[in-house]
Design a protein around this nucleic acid. Structure first.
Lengths: 131, 131
DNA sequence: TCTCTTTTTAGACCGTATCTAAATTCATGA
DNA sequence: TCATGAATTTAGATACGGTCTAAAAAGAGA
């Protein structure tokens, strides 16, 4: 992964220590953490950080196109460092969310829906992770 | 639509006036209302109804398989009287949610995902409603 | 009618997210 | 270097979705 400081600078965002800590964590995350989960993690290296800063920074990263939000869990938005199109699988047992590559599925018919101008879509799959 | 009283009775649910009012509304709803939106509607005919009853009843209807919950809006679950498989389209302008028939789209590849036992899935589409 | 069970109710409570005003940090120019 | 003003962070207030609790009310059955 590229240096989070460089990434922030490239987006015109001042790389404060709080922002760097947050970006460092979320940009490399393989899970799909909520804001409060991110707060908990970042507090380990940055104990005085406030909730408001985490929320503000995450919203800023979304605005800059560095992460996306996903509505996949009840009650909370989750953050995803993958900004390219992909699908999601949710393990019904654990609640864990997995990324499914765009190429793994094929969806047809989205262009034929009368009255609907589809800009983007994703498949949300649910079931059990097999190991 | 069938009589909501009959539907409740068939499920072994005592058809109190509050439950009937709630079932009557949600079972015929074309929108995808949240619990609080349902509360607001039902209050018109049943002004003394409490929030707890609406939430309890909706959870009961879900348990009985009469409606489903969908995680499609940020911050709140929405209720859907369609219990069969179908997809959803979300108008990014208005936030309105539309049902897309199962047959309108074809999805392939879900059975080939290694390590994932897919039980169910849906396509979530976003864009603009055209009229 | 009496009793017991089910249902409803108001309000307390909890979690997520935003807002606010004050404090702090930072960049800039004199 | 210092002073100034803008940007950022902070704690806590606020708003809202949803659940829980204990007491009141309604209903079923003997």
């Amino acid at each position: 992964m590229t240096d989070p400081v460089a990434i922030l600078l490239r987006c015109g965002v001042r790389p404060t220590s709080q922002r760097v800590a947050i970006a460092d964590y979320i940009l490399g995350a393989r899970s799909h953490p909520s804001a409060d989960e991110i707060l908990a993690h970042v507090k380990k290296t940055c104990p005085a950080i406030s909730r408001a800063t985490v929320y503000n920074t995450l919203n800023l990263l979304v605005e800059k196109g560095l992460v996306t939000t996903q509505i996949l869990r009840e009650g909370t938005v989750v953050f995803d460092p993958i900004v390219d199109n992909h699908h999601h699988f949710i393990d019904e047992q654990s609640g864990r969310i997995y990324d499914i590559p765009w190429e793994a599925l094929r969806v047809s018919g989205t262009a034929d829906l009368k009255g609907f101008d589809v800009r983007r879509f994703q498949v949300v799959l649910r079931g059990r992770r097999r190991r």
